[in-house]
Design a protein around this nucleic acid. Structure first.
Lengths: 233, 233
DNA sequence: CGGCCCATTGAAGCTCATCAAATCGAGTGG
DNA sequence: CCACTCGATTTGATGAGCTTCAATGGGCCG
């Protein structure tokens, strides 16, 4: 068992340093969007700042350099749904043509690179490798969205939460590690899963009691990253 | 009021011919996939036949020539979710790389054109117009999937049903017409919306009583195609 | 210490799923 | 034309799961 975690179900030890939890490095490896880096402008936003408003037409896409960003749709009566979370390396907003139905805002302090959509289009026309990368990226986004449809359409609260934790584990944990840090609050998780935040809280408490996860603050350790809640990954 | 519909809430008249309901013509206009038509093989499937099994890796994509096709994911315990319905002109399966999580089957008798994914890739590399069309098509699919996330994540049963009817009206009704014919059964609609089929049935009965729709068999007339259930289109 | 944000826990109510049964419509065959 | 059958739709009754409202507690920063 990792020393970072308390043995008791409810962790009460003082907050330890994040020993052994290295955040996935932001921009070490070469990235398929690198060719466009020069043409993009760096933008910084603080936690909870807006980046694009809901309904706003934008000629820009965004590459996340570091931090975490969410896309959210808010209905008149206040109901909210998070479309996706995006982390370092992700491209965001390419699919929105005229007027996006999702707003974009910062979950944590973030650094972004703002890219003109036309610049992406143009470069895709010149560079077949880049073109293929772009298509693959869109295909992956589409597969992810469709899998999430199954989670939201047919998953129970427990399955939705487990699905979320698995996704975040895959995207945020260093290779081979069970531990990772969730950058977002319960409210965001709830709106990502179409649940009430109380339900998310109770669900995570259940998983803790069942021995599926350990938690300490926003640190999570997924004890059985492989199996568990059926085909709802 | 259209003569096709009875004035009583529950239509009891004998089934009339589909007067005034012209199905959207299958392949009249030129289509961006036409350049690949020669390289594709025509495949016919009857109602409820499988086209691709769940989990099967396939090197093919499918263009719908006529009829209606569904993609469905079935969990071990029998829960099922429909990913999308596809109609004449749609391209299907391009985003599935190795092993798709959704099966493909025929809702009605269908005619398909089977296209090799590599042929699409290759042609995209040669023809910039085609390449742009492909990207736009994927972007549209992605936007549709994300909007549906909001419907499944935050919509009530009534909103989901209204959203479905609006989508089908937009995709199936001749321009300007209120009437259209739903090719799929209640079970499919329910699995598309993440509801029990009884709930869909009751919801449509409510809409009928509320004067939002008229129904006769699988014919639907959407009386207020524009407004209604908030931003959940 | 006091204030604020967020997480947690409890209790009550509502929506929707589930189980069960009746009805309807389209075929089919006498 | 009518009886029979089968799949699909409709309606009713009951209960589970989740939301909502409300209150408490914990951690952090001034």
């Amino acid at each position: 068992m990792h020393s970072t975690y308390a043995a008791t179900p409810i962790a009460r030890n003082p907050v330890p340093p994040l020993s052994g939890i290295a955040l996935r490095s932001a921009a070490a490896a070469p990235h398929w969007l690198d060719p466009l880096a020069a043409s993009g402008m760096i933008v910084r936003k603080r936690r909870n700042e807006d980046i694009v408003a809901q309904g706003e037409a934008s000629e820009y896409c965004w590459q996340i350099v570091s931090g975490c960003v969410r896309t959210a749709m808010v209905l008149e009566d206040g109901r909210r749904l998070i479309g996706e979370f995006h982390f370092a390396g992700d491209l965001l907003g390419y699919e929105a043509l005229g007027g996006q139905s999702f707003a974009v805002s910062a979950v944590s302090d973030v650094v972004l690179r703002r890219l003109r959509r036309t610049a992406i289009e143009a470069h895709a026309g010149r560079d077949p490798k880049f073109d293929a990368h772009l298509r693959q990226y869109m295909a992956a986004q589409l597969r992810a969205a469709r899998n999430r449809l199954a989670v939201l359409g047919r998953g129970t609260a427990g399955e939705r939460i487990m699905s979320f934790l698995r996704e975040m584990h895959a995207r945020l944990a260093p290779a081979g590690a069970r531990e990772f840090v969730l950058p977002m609050k319960l409210t965001d998780i709830a709106d990502y899963l179409g649940l009430a935040l109380e339900t998310v809280c109770r669900g995570m408490a259940d998983l803790r009691r069942a021995g599926a996860i350990m938690t300490n603050r926003s640190q999570i350790a997924l004890l059985f990253p492989a199996g568990g809640a059926g085909a709802l990954h």
